[in-house]
Amino acid sequence: MRYERPETLEDAVGLLSATPERSHILAGGTDLLVRMKNDDFDADLVVDIKRIAGMGEIARTDAGFVIGAAVPCAKLAEDAALVAAWPGVVEAANLIGSTQIQSRCTMTGNLCNAGPAADSVPALVAVDARVKIVGPEGNRIIPARDVPVGPGQTSLAPGEIVAAIVLPEPAPQTGSAYLRFIPRTEMDIAVVGTAVVLTRDADGTVASARVALGAVGPRVIVPDDAAQMLVGTTLDDDTLARFEAACSDAATPIDDKRGTVAFRKEVAGVLARRAAKIAYDRAGETQ
């Protein structure tokens, strides 16, 4: 197995293109290093992208917050502007693993690992994040939602690298929140994850809403019908009850070691309702 640490994205793409099979990108390594310990793990090439300029930086541009692919999740929480703009994303990213893991793991890694239970992915989808992809055929920008296509599968072509995640600037009076269910208090993986982003009008009614459900389907589920129920309301109890039921209905989980279908559907609704209330309150606190 070869370990390479290129200094440019072009070199990284070149290395990966030359070894399209059995090659891996290393940033935080919190998924890859665990897999490498398995007896059945085989790799010919590992490309460490941490030395590439900009990979470890958060930049605020006209497009919004550009978060380099190797930015550890802990660093997100240290960026006051980002925390103020998208608390739902930062809190989701900082639920992953332990404090030690958070200082290594990255949102891009979380996205490209394509685990259905990834915590940061519903939060990214709810804020309609984009990703910058560089590859042998050129660069492209796609919605974060379109990166994972199924458990462990991404839409990235051989040789392509996600270079950054871009979060838009939030509209005024926008709030975001992420809640997950785990049987423990920390160091666990989501049985259900729910992200809500909503923007208030001046009169306090919801102007727009976007909801994303994680761990209840092979990909993140975006129940637009449920989100639309919140628009034009102030989240009264009746609305929230209908919203909760709609989110439960939208969830398409499986029975597995982490939970049952019935449990996950029910809890998806409960957490979506709770997240909506938090997002609504946060929207009221912003300018």
């Binding site: 423990r184 208090t185 920390e186 160091m187 666990d188 993986i189 597995d256 070691k257």
Partner: peptide
């Protein structure tokens, strides 16, 4: 211990075999 229909252990690790952590 959670077994699948195939009789294989589904949670052979501390992620899904949940012993309490300190904060629990």
């Amino acid at each position: 211990y959670i077994y699948g229909e195939d009789g294989r252990l589904q949670n052979a690790g501390f992620l899904d075999y949940r012993i309490p952590v300190c904060s629990d």
